[in-house]
Design a binder for these strands. Sequence first.
DNA 1: CATTGTTGTCATCTA
DNA 2: AATAGATGACAACAA
Length: 672
Amino acid sequence: MQNVKKYFTEGLIQFTILLSLIGVRVDVDSYLNGYYSPLEINDGPSSAFIQTPFHSLRDNWDGYSVHPKCPELDYFFASRRLLGEVRALGSPARFPTQLSAWLVQVPDRSEFGEPPNSTSSSNVSAGLSSESTGEEANDSDLLAEDESCSTVNARLRGRQEECQTEPGPYPSTGACEIPKEEVELLNGQIDGDEAREELVSLTQLALSSALEQEGLFTSGASLACPEDPRPPTIDIHQHWSHFLSLPVSEFDDLDPLVPQQLSDLDADISSAISQDVSLRDAMVTGSTYDMIPPRGGVRTLVARQPRGTLFQLESTNSSDSAPGTTTGLAALPFTTVVNGTSNGTLSHSALGGCLDEAVFDQINLLGLEGCLDNMDAQLLGNLQGINPRVLGDLDSDSGLSLESSSRGPTSPGASEVSSASSSSFCEDEGGATGYSSEADSLPSKGIADYDTTWSPVDLSESVWHDHSYSTPAFSHPSATTFPHKAIKQEPFSDEDDDREDYEDRELSRDELRARALHVPLSATEIVSMPVEEFLELLEGRGLSAAQVTLLRDIRRRGKNKLAAQNCRKRKLDAITGLQEEVERLQAQRNRLLRERQHTAKALGAAGQRMEHLSRDVLSRLRDDSGRPLTPERYTLQCGANGRVVVQQIRRPGVASTTAGGKTDKRKKEKKP
DNA sequence: CATTGTTGTCATCTA
DNA sequence: AATAGATGACAACAA
């Protein structure tokens, strides 16, 4: 399967390229960034949501809220990502359905005069339907396991070639007279989610145990939709059928075939594309409103959007990977795949053929809780063109919108917006009153002009996102009145009230202290600048001790504030994961209880049958005096060696009266 | 007015 | 040793 995944992944990338060549716009960057990020989890230590041993404990719960920092999950993420990509790109996940359509036609070999047991005879049907129906056991017995791949695939190929000679695209309604149930079985088998995961290696399906196949068929048959509109392009069927007909061992050698196959396909597939859709757009529109997690209504769309900003922007500290993105993606496939619970959203409507639709479906599949961060980050990317003030207003709660550590030169506007959106700090920076610094004792001076020798230019690339730490540009002279309470009490004209109050809210306590000490840097800058730069700032600027202390405090508090917010978010995620785990375990417990009940019932029935059989056997036996053995006095015991022994029941009263002339134990053995 | 949730901060530990 | 990050605890605040 690994080779198959590799093949699919590479092939689908080329397929995407081909789509773009034929004019279909595919936003590969955003798409791949979102999906490949799990592989870049460990890129940097400075990204958010890392170093959380707390989460490593949760990584065992079937993937709930997998922490991206865990390196041991890389392999898992990689494999899941590959599977997710194959699914997300849609088309390959569809072709098994098309393959099944061709498979259906072949069993009508009576028209071709083929012997039913020939090598090219009913491949999967011989192996599968015979076991499922129990009527053609001979065929299935003849099918040795070691001839799995090549034999089955050769049969597939032969049948497909035969079917290609059929005139109609779906001759199942015509010449082919395969039993309908078999058709449904085949369709269902390949339409099922489990089968879709195993879609490439049909041999595994063919060689599965009879029980598994039965279950698979029954489950898959319900999924089969005979009325599904099939793609009208027969070429695609043929190509995919031919593609599938290759033995698994040849998949490694298929790489050179990919361009050719895809080039043959592109025309038809392009017609199948219904519209020109950016994958990123699809992700955003499809997820932002649908994926609101049921967390007691704590989160809203408005509140979540800046959160995505945080993760996306903070990632710039270390690498291109977005921690928030990785978090979401890490959790998602894990949850959906490992649990294997194909809920309602997992069952596709087999509309097959449309890549974009497949992508949308997959997005819906992936769009569970963990995907929020990813979606939000991408949503923010799309919203960057919107009025910054609007975006800032969206940040109603100061919550996790501290995209402070991001330092994107390309997004100064948005960052200023975020900084301007603060509405929480104005009342007071906080609860902890133990805080004290030298700056607190300083008298509030009028804020002088900033020292022009301090060039904030080199810090212009620093983060300006944290709403809690305003930029000097938003300073208000009256803010020098230190008590922040006084800020709210300042009279404003009606016209300027909103604006000035809005600006004053940006002055955090640290900001005010910094101004009081003539520190011409915003708290955001102080917090977000690299440590080397910060140390240089402390040492090379000739700062006073008070200024140095204040700068350190500001930086420490700012960092800790971010850490606290990340920590709280992780805690909430952990709680959510635990709740889901509890639900899952409860469901498992209920299932086990039902199984136990069923087993007890079966055991009781078996005991009754045993009792009847014992009575029957005993009634046919005679003791020394020729009387029939009664179950009241004798019982049958099954020995370990398979022998059945008649044993006399010893009862105190009976033994004392009847044991006189008899041997204690008379054994009559009979062979089973 | 009490309760609850949010947020900032401090102290402490760990890497 | 210094730094950053994580997290429990506390307090202030808002709803």
